[in-house]
Design a protein around this nucleic acid. Structure first.
Lengths: 363, 363
DNA sequence: GCTGGTATGACACCGGTTACCATTACGTGG
DNA sequence: CCACGTAATGGTAACCGGTGTCATACCAGC
């Protein structure tokens, strides 16, 4: 551990100007080394690194060659200090399902891989007392390049306002339209839900129930809206009695389904707001002795791994989560480099995956 | 932005010494402000921050009070530059299941929350060409405080060697004993598998098959070893014909089970190396018209969310993943602060969860 | 000759830490 | 009680490795 290296030639970290050779560089290659080797000032090297136009092409080539030759990589910490911002991207989320978290992470990392940025995680608890404080502290302490917010955090307007006040770039991944199109990666949940409705209507179902997620999630209204839309195209409408609010989890899905399926006039199809609740429907159906899809068709939303592996496999709607992660990262980096110039962001339309859990109603 | 503050007493960026008041602080509170306000040198403040013993108790209290009063937080970037290491912990993993990733992350973050460290993700592809290079670059560029390696990355001795050579602290989460007990969070997969074996043997099964993970994973041998152990306690042994190597995924589990279950002398119980393959067994059983658990008992490993939600619910072995994440982070931080003094790390013994998929064999 | 734009470099600075030196406090022997 | 050695403490300057500001040198056009 004692670090008394050498009483050697080099007094400070600078290298003898008399000894202009690779061999004289000890340890890490710094911008000073490059400057000396290329016979320019460190500022010029800095300009080259940062793609400043204020460098003659010839000089630029020369410097780049030296950088290349010595494998110089500017120190992220030093840049962070000088730039007064770190090259970190924070991902803020509040306990969505693991599949979602991991896929968004992958998508973001797909993009960051090609940059100098690192992804740091900031799971939070939206109902915690210090929810805002923690995020604020993170930003003030680390000055991240930006944040990526996922549902339902992304729907929090107060948070967005705070971020603007803190001059912190951010991108929201959400299923609803927000005021800031340039900072939004929009998933079209409504379109997905509409697809589900059409599919069931097309099969001939008319008594179609919906187990929604909690009303406090704005995405829930999107899915509900789209579902109604899809039904209306077939002249159907959602019977209020067949709409039950669940909690986006297994238990509530099961309970709601048990309620629905034990009614005298039970529905022949159930569209669950997510796959977890759909799996709950499976369990309820078994409990009350009904068969899927013969007695009741089930459609989910999310395409979790479970959906394709359960029996019968679950017809569901797939969000393109990893793609959205990529898009979010790209949008964020774009906003940072272009100074918030809005960027035409694509909208991600989910696709419906037809599997075994849906079939025409038995007459 | 123009920063020409004062031609006053303090030449550098310090603030007027005549104006010792909170109001004189512009922008972020720095160590200089604290030093001035506390009437000590910045060096002394630095000593207080870093818990140096070379500060009189009285002085320490005084400085701490000022720090507290002004909510001073030392700039992580600046410290990183000066310390020549960033306050980042890298988590390196190679595509384990999402549930695992998320739970480990949670555990790690539980601990980091209370420190100045951030968690950055480094998913890799162990079979990629630049696998080592990428990790090396990350370390050289960012000088993280340390790394946490999860299976199967954690079993890679070459990687560990490289990290030692780079003077990079690390902790491995693994199911096998490695040479460095101080850097290991050990999960006792063997004990879990033994539990599974005992459970099935106790139920009266004698023809018990095992679908293992790929042999290249060292954990697979642990599970296999433990399974044999457990069987032997009941005077049973694993028939080589009933051992099939799978790939830790749904398809291979299904194929292996289809093979096993269509034999004339089929096993009455199957222990799958993980839940995903166990779900594959479910599907195969349905395909060949066998009932779980009446015709065949199934036991998995992992307790993924699916396990409790599928029907019939899956008897499986639960690893304490989040706890292991916590332990890994604690071990790492301990190693860093104590200079690798080995730390007695607890061993995590998995528990078996008895559910509906296992029952006595039908006679 | 003056103006203006381009390319480059000198120097201070980002906010901490360490190296080294100066000062102070304290215990001891004469 | 004084001189002195040693430990405890605090100050100054340099440094970590980059970037910003501003001055300057150069060249073209009016």
């Amino acid at each position: 551990m004692s670090d008394k290296t050498s009483s050697v030639s080099l007094p400070t970290h600078g290298v003898d100007s008399s000894d202009v050779d690779a061999l004289s560089i000890k340890g890490r290659v710094t911008i000073n080394d490059i400057a000396r080797l290329a016979n320019v000032s460190k500022k010029t090297v800095s300009r080259v690194i940062n793609d400043s136009p204020l460098v003659r092409e010839e000089t630029r080539q020369k410097v780049k060659a030296v950088i290349e030759a010595y494998g110089f990589r500017p120190d992220p910490q030093a840049r962070a200090l000088a730039f007064r911002r770190s090259f970190l991207i924070g991902m803020i989320y509040d306990n969505p399902n693991p599949q979602y978290v991991v896929n968004i992470q992958r998508g973001i990392l797909d993009v960051l891989e090609t940059t100098d940025h690192q992804l740091v995680l900031q799971p939070t608890n939206r109902s915690a007392e210090d929810y805002y404080d923690r995020i604020r502290r993170f930003i003030e302490n680390h000055r991240p390049t930006g944040l990526i917010l996922t549902p339902s955090i992304s729907e929090d307007e107060d948070l967005a306002a705070m971020l603007r006040e803190l001059d912190c770039h951010y991108v929201r991944v959400a299923s609803v339209d927000l005021d800031e199109p340039g900072k939004l990666v929009r998933t079209d949940d409504a379109a997905g839900a509409a697809e589900a409705a059409r599919h069931l209507a097309r099969l001939g179902h008319t008594k179609i129930a919906h187990i929604s997620g909690p009303r406090s999630f704005r995405s829930v209204h999107q899915r509900l809206f789209g579902f109604r839309e899809g039904l209306s195209e077939f002249g159907l409408e959602l019977d209020p009695a067949l709409l039950i609010e669940g909690g986006y989890n297994f238990e509530t899905g099961m309970n709601a389904a048990e309620d629905l399926l034990t009614r005298r006039d039970r529905p022949t199809a159930i569209f669950a707001g997510n796959d977890e609740m759909a799996i709950g429907v499976y369990t309820a159906a078994r409990k009350v002795g009904l068969n899927i899809p013969d007695d009741v068709s089930v459609v989910g939303f999310d395409d979790t791994p479970m959906a394709s592996r359960i029996w019968p496999s679950l017809t569901t709607v797939r969000l393109q989560i990893r793609d959205m992660g990529r898009e979010a990262a790209n949008t964020l980096l774009h906003a940072v480099s272009e100074g918030d110039m809005p960027r035409r962001s694509e909208r991600f339309t989910p696709e419906i995956l037809l599997r075994e859990s849906s079939a025409p109603p038995s007459t």
